[in-house]
Simulated scan of single mutants.
Amino acid sequence: MYTLAIQPLNPVAFELGPITVYWYGLLIGFGAFLGYLLANREMKRRGLPDDMLADLLLYALPAAIVGARLYYVIFRWDQFADNPISVLYIWEGGIAIHGALIGSFLTAFIFAKKRGVSFWKLADITAPSILLGQAIGRWGNFMNQEVYGGEVSRSFLEGLFLPEFIINQMFIDGAYYHPTFLYESIWNLLGVALLLYLRRVNLRQGEIFLSYLIYYSIGRFVIEGIRTDYLLVFGFLRTAQVLSVILIVGGIFFLIYRRKMGLANKRYLDDEPKPKTNKKKA
């Protein structure tokens, strides 16, 4: 039978002696690198020190990794109880983006306070980069054959005009599944374009970041309803959907509250460098 001949892609990118490098970590790292380039360019345009983003990432990235793993482990402890050391095996998958966001945002808030920089300004600058990193990082889930939805037919996947390698990778344990990793990756890439556009609209400071929270959470709520590898809270509620609702409501609340209280008078482009003009002396 044709389907029996389908082999999953190798999750190992390459090996260097005793060191094994997985596509999962490689793709997450690549997403973080592209996000860094995008944010660093904008930080320089906004007149912030050249090394500020590198200093922030020095603290935020480890906090994001720890937060992502802890979040997942807390809601899936039964998976690690018999072998607690496996908590450290993050290359096998099992991290949660919401945990990463919580860890990195708390770190960024403390960092901004210590550096005397507006947290909202930093958050607005880095929001598109975070979403870009999430979009690329989902392909790490693809290589691990995780973050997929309910069972579908091969003809359904072919009807989405997907390339053969994606369709074949969605053949797991004898059946085909929704490529929810792809749905979220596309949603996030569209979100990057939206946030970059909102920069030119010149929203008030903090509102690009809040727009990110709202936009991402809307997509995550919908896609989470299709996934089969969800985390549960209280034994029956999908954790990511609960948190998505909180972030949507919270994001809208802060948009309104900060405007009403006069906490969002500055706009994103207020400190944009003026273009140089060549004036000829008379």
Score class of each variant (00 low, 15 high):
Gln205Thr: 10
Ser211Val: 02
Phe209Arg: 04
Tyr212Ile: 08
Glu164Trp: 02
Gln205Ile: 05
Tyr212Met: 15
Tyr212Leu: 15
Ala175Ile: 05
Leu194Asp: 08
Leu213Gln: 04
Phe221Asp: 13
Leu213Ser: 09
Glu184Arg: 12
Asp173Val: 07
Ile208Leu: 14
Tyr176Thr: 00
Val222Gln: 08
Ile218Gly: 06
Tyr212Phe: 15
Ile166Ser: 06
Ile167His: 03
Tyr197Arg: 03
Leu203Lys: 08
Phe171Gly: 07
Leu198Thr: 08
Val201Phe: 01
Val192Pro: 11
Trp187Asn: 05
Leu198Val: 09
Leu195Trp: 05
Phe171Tyr: 15
Phe165Met: 11
Leu190Val: 10
Ile167Arg: 06
Leu195Glu: 09
Val201Arg: 12
Arg204Lys: 15
Gly206Ile: 08
Asn202Thr: 05
Ala175Cys: 10
Arg200Pro: 02
Gln169Ser: 01
Tyr216Thr: 13
Thr180Phe: 00
Leu190Phe: 14
Asn202Gln: 10
Ala175Met: 10
Tyr215Asp: 14
Ile166Glu: 07
Tyr176Leu: 00
Asn188Thr: 05
Gly191Thr: 03
Asn168Ala: 00
Val201Asp: 03
Ser217Tyr: 11
Tyr176Glu: 00
Gly174Ser: 05
Leu196Ala: 07
Leu195Cys: 06
Phe209His: 07
Ala193Lys: 05
Arg200Ala: 04
Gly206Ala: 14
Tyr216Trp: 15
Leu195Ser: 10
Tyr197Ala: 04
Val192Arg: 09
Trp187Leu: 06
Leu189Ala: 09
Phe171Trp: 13
